[in-house]
Design a protein around this nucleic acid. Structure first.
Lengths: 212, 212
DNA sequence: CGCTCGTTTGATTGTGATCAACGCTAGTGG
DNA sequence: CCACTAGCGTTGATCACAATCAAACGAGCG
């Protein structure tokens, strides 16, 4: 199943019949408040598995939108459950991936709760760098994230104006460089890690699923 | 394995050999920043299963502390994995419980990112009410949460002073009542739900695991 | 009784939201 | 080829909410 940039793959509150595995492109999972405010819960990149269902295993608890053009494999939930039960290796992999996602949520929760703007942004950049590095052979230090500053703000709980100011501050301090829109080059990885209050290798072990 | 109020069950960064199933009492999972700030990630009550490990399946990504006296069943990770693989029913239950937890995280993430203090507190109270109701035959409307205002603040990303002010405001407005410490009685459930921007039944379906 | 821990209240400060205006770039149609 | 528009990023001014600082209070406990 393919999707186009800006489109919606799944609406919050709708029945969710399938579990998705992203093949190409980026997806964005979000929840909205009645006044239009919306919080981005997570992004999904190629290789990620997304199950939109909540506790009842049927209703979607979030919106899933498309940040870029791309495609997913949509697996009917019944089949997916069967697959997991049949192959212990798959089951173990899903379990560990889940643990990794939890750990990522924990890190972000910590920063949303206690961290100032620069810490949140710095952490988000580190996270993107790591996740992108895992799927592309890209260097850690240069990458493009296919989203607006508004969306980055919705991810880390800041308004777009403040995201802009924070990014510019990082540039002024020589920590990152940004030529084209959201095309980021990390100049001083240590300083970025310090701002994010994260230690690179440790964070990687916590957050990034091991390749089996 | 038993634990005593105020003690620590698992340190962040340590090896984690076991998955815990809470039998009695409350546990608290948290992450700390180097300057002493700490964010509570989640609470665990009787019946909850806690796996402290991150992506590598070995290292704990969080502290686990005891809010009350109590006990857990500590299952060596190997056994736990075996159990899941052997009983598809257990595996399915764990999967759904996991989905419920995710949904709960999503709700809180939304409110940490976009919501003001009263919304965060109101949501937390609703969440506690629901979770407690699921394990005790208690009414939804009256319960005690075994934590200080400081800890409630660490949960929803507020300082203890502001938690206090917010709770008092709720009391003044006749939405809740609080005689003894953290002994809460919900007087106006609808108003509380409105503040939390949550609809009671819908929220329940999203975040409370179904009894199989 | 005096201690400690947690809550309460007031005063002040600071970070980030909001409002508003402008610039830049790309895409569109004449 | 040039208006014209729309979306995004940038910047400044002001505002509001929550953090911090500080002090007092109250309950439980040795």
């Amino acid at each position: 199943m393919t999707f186009r940039k800006g489109g919606t793959v799944q609406f919050e509150g709708d029945k969710s019949r399938s579990v998705y595995c992203v093949l190409e492109g980026w997806l964005v999972m979000s929840k909205a408040l009645s006044d239009g405010q919306n919080q981005i819960i997570d992004f999904a990149m190629p290789g990620d598995i997304v199950d939109p269902a909540g506790a009842d295993g049927r209703t979607s608890v979030m919106n899933i939108g498309a940040l870029t053009d791309g495609s997913v494999a949509a697996m009917p939930r019944r089949i997916w459950t069967q697959m997991i039960n049949t192959w212990p290796t798959l089951q173990r992999r899903v379990y560990l991936t889940q643990a990794a996602k939890q750990a990522r949520y924990n890190e972000r929760l910590l920063r949303l709760g206690k961290g100032p703007a620069d810490m949140r942004i710095a952490y988000a950049l580190l996270e993107f760098a790591m996740r992108l590095r895992a799927i592309k052979k890209d260097s850690v230090s240069e990458f493009r994230i296919p989203m607006t500053q508004q969306q980055l703000g919705d991810y880390v709980g800041l308004c777009s104006v403040h995201v802009c100011r924070t990014l510019r501050r990082l540039m002024r301090n020589g920590i990152i460089d940004m030529r084209k829109q959201m095309h980021i080059k990390v100049l001083d990885l240590d300083a970025l890690g310090e701002l994010a209050r994260a230690e690179h290798e440790g964070l990687k072990n916590e957050i990034m699923p091991i390749r089996l």
